[in-house]
């Protein structure tokens, strides 16, 4: 957990597959935030990254749900990665 804090501002788009993490911060306009929050990604939510191949939307498993987030949008979501 310690070195997790050192990984500075890693975005969801840059995270590796099959890793677990928590959402640290979400950036964007209120419309985007409202969409992302209501689908279940909020600061502090723990998730597992299922898929990230740069070519299709990122897939995360969070709150019982598999969620697909487009690449551009996923780079606005910053995370803490568990090691």
């Amino acid at each position: 957990m310690k070195n997790a804090d050192f990984v500075d501002r890693l975005s969801l788009a840059e995270m590796g597959e099959n890793r677990c993490g928590t959402v640290a911060q979400i950036e964007g306009d209120s419309r985007f935030i409202s969409r992302i929050v209501s689908i279940g990604l909020t600061p502090g939510s723990a998730f597992t990254l299922l898929k990230n191949d740069k070519l299709s939307p990122v897939l995360v498993f969070c709150r019982d749900t598999v969620i697909a987030v487009n690449h551009k949008e996923s780079s606005q979501i910053f995370v803490k990665v568990e090691s």
Binding site: R35, I39, T65, V66, I67, A68, V69
Partner: peptide, 10 residues
């Protein structure tokens, strides 16, 4: 242009 934010249902 808004990208995809969608749940994949079971």
């Amino acid at each position: 242009r808004v990208g995809m934010i969608m749940e994949l249902p079971p």
